[in-house]
């Protein structure tokens, strides 16, 4: 009995492991390398300086094509900007002003605008998907708010795609306007390599290599997908510790109550 149960559990475990493995392997492209991130693991946190650099890369490079629909300017306080700084960042962008006293949203076909406020959502690069496609060779730059959660390999995937540009191997047939990318499904991506050395100038003096910028913006996007992560883990530790103590007490009580039975 004992031995059989044991064997059965081992089989079950192996099968489960297999099923997850094969689920991950699907997709075609090379799996991205597993990198070390400060925010992985039960105690991991986001590196504030890195997130600020990541925001700079997003703002100066990616925001030309990709929206970050779920993020409000006020959220930027989470990554280390002061309330005043956030106000300034928001005010640099123009957002739809909404109806004026006469109930108009447009003036002579032009959208009425005002400077952004912290409670606004980040502005989008294009008015709609059609405009985004028109500017990108027919391809749609996806919203990046949840990208790190929407791929099985998570944030590693973003970093890999950003650094995965190469010349196509000889004989590989490329389509018009596409770039070769090791990690993108099908190896052809409609996004031209977005990063080049010194594409941004970091205020903190960090050298803006392609790898550095890729790691920074990936960290920023991981936060954008899971802004609750640090709070979640902090609370989680307390919850687990509490449950362990409670369960130990319940176990002791169970032993005591059952001691009388035999």
């Amino acid at each position: 009995m004992k031995k059989q149960t044991f064997i059965a559990w081992i089989t079950a475990g192996l099968l489960l492991a297999f099923s997850f493995n094969s689920a991950l392997a699907a997709g075609g492209a090379t799996p991205p390398p597993k990198l070390k991130w400060s925010f992985h693991g039960p105690f991991g946190t986001f590196d504030r300086a890195q997130m600020k650099r990541g925001w700079q890369v997003y703002k100066e490079v990616c925001a030309g094509c990709h929206s970050l629909h779920q993020i409000y300017y006020r959220n930027l306080q989470d990554i280390g900007f002061s309330a005043g700084e956030v106000k300034k960042i928001a005010a640099e962008d123009e957002v739809a002003a909404g109806p004026n006293e006469d109930g108009e949203t447009h003036d002579g076909g032009e959208l009425l605008v005002r400077p952004g406020k912290p409670f606004d959502k980040l502005i989008k690069p294009f008015a709609n998907d059609a405009a985004a496609r028109a500017a990108n060779n027919g391809a749609l730059p996806p919203d990046l708010s949840l990208t790190s959660k929407a791929h099985a390999t998570g944030v590693d995937y973003i970093a890999a795609v950003l650094t995965g540009y190469k010349d196509p191997p000889s004989g590989f047939k490329m389509n018009e306007g596409m770039a070769y990318n090791t990690y993108f499904a099908g190896n052809q991506i409609a996004m031209p390599a977005p990063l080049s050395a010194d594409a941004v100038e970091y205020a903190d003096g960090t050298k803006a290599t392609v790898e550095q910028m890729a790691l920074d913006v990936s960290t920023f996007l991981a936060w954008a997908a899971e802004p609750e992560m640090e709070e979640r883990k902090r609370l989680g530790i307390k919850v687990i510790l509490f449950l362990i103590v409670l369960t130990a007490l319940l176990y002791a009580l169970k032993r005591r109550i059952w001691a009388k039975v035999h």
């Binding site: 319940l250 009580l253 169970k254 109550i257 059952w258 039975v261």
Partner: peptide, 11 residues
């Protein structure tokens, strides 16, 4: 007997 056993299991 079983209330405590169930509670321990729940923990």
């Amino acid at each position: 007997y079983y209330t405590i056993k169930d509670l321990y299991g729940l923990g």
